[in-house]
Amino acid sequence: MAKKPPEVNTGSMADISFLLLTFFLLTSSIDTDLGLSRKLPPMPEDIPPPPIKERNVFVVLVNAYDMLLIEGRPGDINTLRRDAKNFFLNPGNDPKLSEKKLEEIPLIGPYEKSKGIISLQNDRGTSYEMYIKVQNELAAAVNEMRDELSMKKFGVKFADLKDEAQSKAIQKAIPVAISEAEPKDIGGTK
């Protein structure tokens, strides 16, 4: 009988793979990038902006002490979402809230589209956390309105719409209209 060849020692292979594992653990990070995507407007040109009626503008001001002024009244971040939705939907046709115009939208049919836009202005001393909170609440208001309309018309949430034409229609009915004012120094810094 022939002699068995000696076995290769594989004990250190585990050590090598441990080394690799540690290397990857150190050089990589698990965090996935999440965030609020926005599009900045181009630099202003000398053309005056189209006139907008005052009732169609939902003014949100944030001062250096992170306090809110919503439509001329001191506001609260907890009610901002409700206020914004109420402003756009204007269920009671309040003359102080946004105007609505009956419009024919493909796949949805006649829809009372709001003419309102949100104007957001913050101070240089506003904290970034507060700014994100406000942006988030305003985005949430738009998303909620889109979800509601989508549920009513297509039976699924806006984010779950498979058909691109359907999401286009919803986006047309409820556009994101957040305008950020040109930066200026109001209220001083803290």
Binding site: L34, K39, N136
Partner: peptide, 19 residues
């Protein structure tokens, strides 16, 4: 960023409740 025409931005955040 507006001056150089990089209009697409993303404010990096965590997922969590704000109110």
């Amino acid at each position: 960023l507006r001056k150089v025409g990089a209009f697409k931005i993303n404010y990096s955040t965590k997922k969590g409740s704000v109110v």
